[in-house]
Design a protein around this nucleic acid. Structure first.
Length: 580
RNA sequence: GUACCUGUAGCUCAAUUGGACAGAGCAUCUGACUACGGAUCAGAAGGUUGGGGGUUCGAUUCCCUCCAGGUACGCCA
């Protein structure tokens, strides 16, 4: 077999696609377009083999030959070692059937590899991932979980794929709300409440101050004045603001700890405050900005985008200016290959505008907006005003409680501390998985039932599979004290073993692809499918009762499944306890 | 008004970016050896992919149009 580890591992799809490309070029020299995508992909149905190549049909027009003839030429080429046989089917599909012997040897190599065959295409390049980014003085609610959990999964995926990741929590810590907050704090604050539950108190104050501003113009003017003082560096206001930020962060960090999320940088909008005038002068120098109705705006008709205000008519900077300052600062300081923003769908236009302006300013960094659908409640959008927000902390509490009830029922022999620990991992895992297992861009309607699902396609199903394997491995050691599975080769005899092997070998592609298209759900799907095949294997193929040799081979497969599930779930930020 | 997004089984969601008969999980119905852990497994049933046109060998995917819902759009972030 090929020496796939010598230059870093390559994935199954890469091996087969490279081969197919080479075979096409050899069969039709000079006529195959350079950009040919000879993509070999997993088949949807086992009867068509393990992988398929569909390029023959696409090539038919270019080569002016029938697709079946082209497919036949591919099928007749010298096969790669991984492939047992090739078949032409339908209008011109080429089906690949992998060789069980080859798979067995490859799995043995994967088992010995800490990275389980996953390559490192990042090659040390830098990427900034901007996610979570809650607003200071407001509680995190269920709407924040998507950015946090999806962003964190992308963070972990990129790190594992060899990127130097800078996870940046771009706090909303600057803006007009602070005038109202300062006024409110001076008049309505309850010091004891502020100490014990700072964000709840700040929220209460804000709402009260906001309501008052609606009916009292003098109050609103005073709030504006406080904001100006804050922005001019007034010591008292500055100290208050600082206190708001610190108290908020304390609460955010409590949630991040529960979610096992951490950042390399926590830089709020205020961090870039000093750079705002510089951005405006640069835009002026490059003649990108124009005055309109007192405001400074950038026209983006050439990009088919509406006009973008970068400085308001009262001289204050807005969100676009802050984000331009932020992105140029990141580019200068870290020279990233890419900056990834993880926010909800409402900011699509904003980022398209900011990216367009950044490009006009000469910024070459790849900028990506990974947006996700807004979280809604069955009765509609939630809002602070309607009072129907569900706080993130409450969701996590509820998840752990429900999980605890089930653990107590199913594992009564476990001591209580252990039960709580398992319930924590299972509950938090379920909440994360509920978000990570669906396409980020779909609309999400929040229901308790879905967020806390503990069976079927859910984190606990995967955790259960892991726990069961851990238990099997223990039993093996108990019953066969001198046994060493690694001393025996892997054999793929049963159809279910073969199916399992094919799934196991797809892991690297699942990881690479999930990161490439910014969709953790592709990895979640993969892990779920692997678990399903494993569960079928577990239920239908005896292994501890099998004869020596076969037994060890099957134990090795179990071990591999556990390693892949653990690694995959870790990449999604989900824990895998030994027992659940 | 303009732009973007969404619409798939009763419900909640997938579908490797144009591939083969559209797949899972809930829920419903049938089954599973005193067994390595039943949070499981084997199976059944469930569909005009919002409607209608078009491109293509081939469309949930691309184009046009209509319907329904959502979001954003010169001084909130």
């Amino acid at each position: 077999m090929e020496d796939w580890m010598s230059d870093g591992p390559i994935t199954m799809e890469q091996i087969l696609s490279d081969w197919a490309r080479g075979a096409f070029l050899a069969a039709y020299p000079g006529t195959v377009p350079d950009g040919l995508s000879a993509g070999v992909v997993p088949t949807a149905d086992e009867q068509f083999g393990d992988y398929q190549c569909n390029a023959a049909m696409a090539l038919a027009k270019v080569l002016k030959k029938s697709p079946r003839e082209i497919a036949a030429a591919l099928a007749a080429a010298a096969r790669p070692a991984a492939v047992e046989r090739l078949e032409v089917a339908g209008p011109g599909f080429v089906n690949f059937f992998l060789d069980p012997e080859w798979m067995a040897r490859r799995l043995e190599q994967v088992q010995a590899d800490e990275r389980l065959g996953v390559p490192e295409p990042g090659r040390g390049r830098t990427v900034v991932i901007d996610y979570s980014s809650p607003n200071v003085a407001k509680p995190m609610h269920i709407g924040h979980i998507r950015s946090t959990v999806i962003g964190n999964a992308l963070d972990r995926l990129h790190r594992f794929l060899g990127w130097r990741v800078l996870a940046d929590n771009h706090l909303g810590d600057w803006g007009t709300q602070f005038g109202l907050l300062i006024m409110g704090f001076r008049h309505f604050a309850d010091p004891a409440a502020y100490e014990s539950a700072p964000i709840d108190e700040l929220e209460r104050i804000y709402v009260k101050s906001y309501d008052k501003s609606k009916e009292d113009p003098a109050w609103l003017d005073a709030a504006r004045a406080e904001l100006v003082k804050l922005q001019q560096g007034d010591a008292g206001n500055r100290a208050l603001w600082q206190s708001f930020v610190e108290h908020s962060l304390r609460e955010f960090n409590r949630i991040y700890r529960r979610l096992d999320v951490s950042f390399d940088l926590v830089r709020g909008e205020s961090h870039y405050n000093d750079r705002l005038p510089g951005i405006i002068s640069k835009l002026r120098e490059q003649e990108l900005v124009r005055e309109s109705e007192g405001a400074l705006v950038v026209f983006l008709e050439d990009e088919k985008l509406p006009v973008c205000i970068v400085r308001k008519s009262d001289g204050a900077y807005n969100y676009a200016a802050t984000d331009l300052a932020t992105v140029t600062s990141r580019a200068e300081e870290f020279q990233p290959e890419a900056v990834i923003y993880v926010t909800d769908e409402r900011q699509q236009l904003h980022f398209r505008q900011v990216f367009a302006i950044a490009r006009k300013m000469g910024l070459a960094t790849r900028l990506v907006h990974v947006w996700f659908g807004l979280m809604r409640l069955p009765e509609g959008t939630f809002s602070t005003r309607q009072g129907n927000v569900i706080k993130l902390e409450r969701l996590l509490d509820e998840a752990e409680e429900r999980a605890l009830a089930i653990v107590k029922e199913t594992s009564p022999q476990m001591d209580e501390a252990r039960q709580r620990e398992v319930a924590r991992a299972v509950g938090i895992g379920a909440v994360k998985y509920a978000d990570l297992s669906q396409n980020p861009q779909s609309l999400v309607t929040f229901t308790w039932e879905k967020a806390l699902a503990l069976e079927g396609n859910s984190a606990p199903y995967l955790q259960y599979a892991c726990a069961r394997i851990a238990s099997v491995l223990d039993k093996y050691r108990e019953r066969f004290p001198g046994g060493d599975p690694m001393a025996h080769p892997i054999r793929l005899g049963e159809p279910l073993e073969r199916r399992l092997a094919v799934r196991l070998l797809r892991f690297p592609d699942a990881v690479v692809r999930a990161a490439e298209v910014y969709k953790p759900n592709l990895l979640a799907d993969y892990l779920y499918e692997l678990s399903q095949v494993y569960s079928a294997f577990y239920q239908n193929v005896p292994f501890l009762k099998a004869g020596e040799g076969v037994r060890e081979s099957r134990v090795r497969l179990c071990d591999l499944v556990m390693k892949v599930l653990r690694r995959g779930l870790t990449l999604l930020g989900i824990e895998t306890p030994d027992r659940i």
